[in-house]
Nucleic acid binder design. Structure first.
Lengths: 244, 244
DNA sequence: CAACGATTATTTGTATGATAATTGAACCAT
DNA sequence: ATGGTTCAATTATCATACAAATAATCGTTG
């Protein structure tokens, strides 16, 4: 048999990562608003039963994400929100954990409406055959999915490969946002996707336009898909809700 | 009297930051392509004359930015590019240092064309009076600038406050990109801005549309401004070039 | 000889303790 | 009050030791 209970995801997570996550969530949660001072290193060590070494490494991670800054004799201060790396996978995850899901998903959709149509148009002009292939096989994955849960992963792959096909590295960081969004939309709307076949058709329209090198068609097809996602979201969470 | 001579660049930069910068630049420069292994911690320590502690803190910073991942017995491996936090201020700076400026600026402009019109439209719908004020005073700053160099800072402020006025936190991380872009465009095109008065007029159009709550007008005005910037960029660098 | 299991070696992870550097705050002399 | 000095709190750096993870090696066995 494998691991026992399902609450232990794979590996026990290194101590400094646990600390970074704990402190990061506190910050995103608003426990320490921007401008305020965090407890000092020794104090974090006491709270988590960790050595200063581990605490400092966690803090350096958070500094790397733009959440805090440190100065001798002062301590660690929370940076203003506009310096936060909100698109970072971890930060976004902590944000999800701390924030109302619906509000967050609406923000994500708004950003997607601004970005993805333009990205699809770019992809239609610049995608390589290999990139087109990757998009197509993601779509195949969606078709092949038996349960709605298994549809999410290929869906994510579809959008990630679309972004990759835009061939502009500065747009890649948005992949993390899309990834978090799609995973959470499923969490939120659960099994009540109206008609999976419809979603697949909408994705296929994008693929076709990108394949034929029609930027404007790709843009419009993406807008249609996003509008559809908006409608699914607007229906609100599934009545039963989800446990975890 | 304020600080004295400019010979001391602010502060001697902490050791772990020097390390993070050095290693980060190496990665962005392509010395260690994605998927390859970095030298181990002891080796970095030897190269920089630093303790393992300092090296490890630098590495944790880079992990935080998504550039590398670490595993015991394996070492530090460069992550695939689509996990890099390219919008992070530091990463972007290292990227600038490593890459051809023109190519980078073209990528930035492309991203701006996708993002900023939509952002301006959002801002027209949602800006608060205070946010509108901040945009207006940035424009005033541009007007008041005596030398072209002094015009850059208010220009940056104009765009940052426009992004802020969109009131979508997920769009904020792009501020760093715009910031780096505008600073470098000045570096690149130097003093040969054709007519500052024209640039100011184009910015003013955006402000007016946002003030009047006209999303589509704001979108179009932003597109016009970006097209203008494109033209300035297309002229290429100033013949004399810049020293630094 | 092939496959599998234990051993080993390498690298990162964590802990401890000490010292240096930075800088706000308190203090003191004028 | 003013200006400089000292003090103290906190991060920054170092050295060392040991723990944990895991790829590679080696040896056993079927």
């Amino acid at each position: 048999m494998k691991q026992q209970s399902p609450r232990q995801q794979n590996r026990p997570l290194k101590l400094h990562l646990t600390l970074a996550q704990g402190i990061g969530e506190d910050i995103l949660k608003g426990t320490y608003p921007p401008g305020t001072l965090l407890p000092n290193e020794a104090e974090w060590g006491r709270r988590y039963g960790a050595s200063r070494t581990a605490v400092r490494e966690a803090i350096k991670t958070l500094v790397g994400k733009g959440l805090i800054g440190t100065r001798p004799k002062i301590g660690s201060r929370v940076e203003p929100r506009d310096r936060w790396n909100l698109l970072d996978r971890d930060v976004l995850a902590w944000h999800c954990a701390a924030m109302d899901k619906k509000t967050l998903l609406l923000s994500v959709q708004e950003a997607r409406h601004i970005l993805e149509p333009g990205i699809a148009a770019l992809a239609a002009r610049r995608r390589t055959p290999a990139q087109l292939n990757r998009i197509a096989s993601a779509l195949e994955g969606m078709r092949g999915a038996k349960s709605p849960g298994l549809e999410v992963e290929p869906d994510i792959q579809f959008h990630l490969s679309l972004i990759a096909a835009a061939n502009n590295e500065l747009l890649q960081p948005f992949g993390g946002m899309i990834e978090a969004a799609l995973a959470n939309i499923f969490e939120y709307t659960s099994v009540n996707h109206p008609r999976p076949s419809q979603a697949i058709a909408l994705h296929e329209n994008i693929l076709k336009a990108v394949a034929r090198g029609k930027p404007e068609a790709a843009r419009r097809a993406t807008e249609v898909l996003l509008d559809n996602t908006d409608r699914i979201l607007a229906k609100g969470p599934v009545p039963g809700g989800r446990k975890t």
